[in-house]
Design a protein around this nucleic acid. Structure first.
Length: 400
DNA sequence: TCTGGGGTCCTAGGACCC
DNA sequence: TCTGGGGTCCTAGGACCC
């Protein structure tokens, strides 16, 4: 999808159309740009840029908060359109998908005809623009859809992959970020075509596992690497996490502990939604100087209960926090799913059952009245005023 | 430039087991 | 005792993606 978050915001407020728009928050907040309209991009604003920087570059831009629930809803509509073209659809992210069009020629016609039909139907049904890349591999299809933006269609004819890729900057290859780009540049490699000339073994030794895949891809080959899996394989999450950056750094336990509790609640809730039990709990701690540590603990009995998560997290925090040091960010991360609940000893059984029932009731309350309806964290007497904006729009406000 | 939040994958070292 | 090899699990950190 093209400038997805911005385009969705424009659906809700058509007056934004054509103007420089920045999605992500207020310009004086800690945060980065989630998406910028094409008009804002003309000023050098781009996603991942600090909001304050975006403001300096383009003070006349309209800054709006993101609305994840709106994007999810639109993403579902996008999915429905795609599914009407092929049963093999894989959403790669909220605004990006792969379709396996094998065998749909009788129905949709040759590639360009099918792509234009898809383009049109997307616009008709969602009022959103997208770009379509067509190729014999996922990697080339992805890159060609990037090249087709905005609002375009691009087909890389089989056999032309290497010629298509050769003149592109290495940065265009998904997986090549800032660091790898710099490393490649010091080797004098700037274009994908330069990569294609190098020796496989050299690339693997220098860039690890996917160096090899990269080498092959740069020649348009389709062997090896993450991009070759089947399209449409549905898998659950491998980890769940929530984190929070304070508007101002804090060393105040009256602020820190309730925040940890709140994060544990959010994680616990999602665990229960997915029916998962986590075996590893991880704390993330970022100090004022931006140095960041993670501390994990695996537990013998997997859990999905807020209270058990919080016990572990609080312990990890107390053992690893440099006391008095300003905290910028706190995060709670769980992974390592267990098959289910193990046997509890009789002592724990009753307590455990009570918490389970209480949390199930809390989940139902949140479904009805919104995320801030009930909270263990509130009982810890913290100041959550700065989190007030996180109550999703469209849900009723705070209920006592 | 003063740096979000939710994820995935990879690397590397160490404990531990046979 | 001067030291193998294969495997798994755990932990920490980092690159990268949207």
């Amino acid at each position: 999808m093209d400038a997805f978050f911005v385009s969705v915001e424009e659906l809700f407020d058509p007056s934004l159309k054509g103007k420089p728009v920045v999605v992500g928050g207020r310009p004086n907040e800690r945060g980065v740009v989630s998406a910028a309209s094409y008009a804002a991009r003309a000023f050098g604003v781009h996603s991942a840029m600090p909001l304050r920087t975006a403001y300096k570059l383009c003070p006349q831009a309209i800054f709006v908060d993101g609305h994840p629930e709106r994007y999810r809803e639109c993403s579902h509509q996008v999915y429905d359109v795609l599914r009407s073209f092929s049963p093999l659809v894989e959403m790669a992210s909220i605004d990006e998908a792969y379709l396996d069009m094998t065998g749909t020629e009788r129905l949709h016609g040759p590639p360009m005809r099918a792509a234009h039909k898809l383009h049109q139907k997307m616009k008709d049904q969602t009022k959103l623009n997208c770009s379509v890349g067509i190729a014999a591999s996922r990697l080339v299809a992805k890159i060609s859809s990037d090249q087709a933006k905005p609002n375009g269609v691009l087909w890389v004819i089989p056999g032309q992959e290497a010629a298509f890729l050769a003149p592109l900057d290495v940065r265009k290859v998904p997986g090549v970020g800032k660091v790898t780009e710099k490393n490649l540049h010091t080797l004098g490699i700037r274009k994908v075509g330069d990569l294609a000339l190098l020796d496989d073994a050299f690339l693997e030794q220098r860039f690890g596992k996917w160096g090899m895949a990269l080498a092959g891809k740069s020649r348009g080959l389709d062997a090896g690497g993450w991009f070759d899996s089947e399209i449409g394989a549905e898998e659950g999450p491998k980890s769940i996490s929530h984190e929070h950056t304070f508007n101002e750094d804090t060393a105040d336990m009256a602020q820190i502990e309730p925040t940890l509790a709140r994060l544990c609640e959010m994680v616990g809730r999602r665990l229960r939604e997915h029916g998962l039990h986590a075996r590893t709990v991880q704390l993330k701690l970022r100090y004022s100087d931006f140095s960041t540590i993670t501390r994990a603990q695996s537990i013998s009995r997997a859990t999905q209960l807020d209270t058990e998560l919080f016990e572990r997290i609080r312990e990890l925090f107390r053992h690893n926090w440099k006391e008095g040091a300003g905290v910028r960010l706190l995060g709670v991360h769980v992974s390592g799913w267990a098959d289910g609940e193990q046997q509890l000893d009789l002592m724990d059984e009753g307590r455990h059952e009570k918490w389970k029932q209480a949390l199930a009731a809390a989940d139902r309350m949140r479904d009805r009245f919104g995320e801030s309806a009930v909270s263990l964290a509130a009982g810890l007497r913290g100041n959550f005023r700065e989190r007030a904006h996180e109550n999703p729009v469209g849900l009723p406000g705070k209920k006592k």
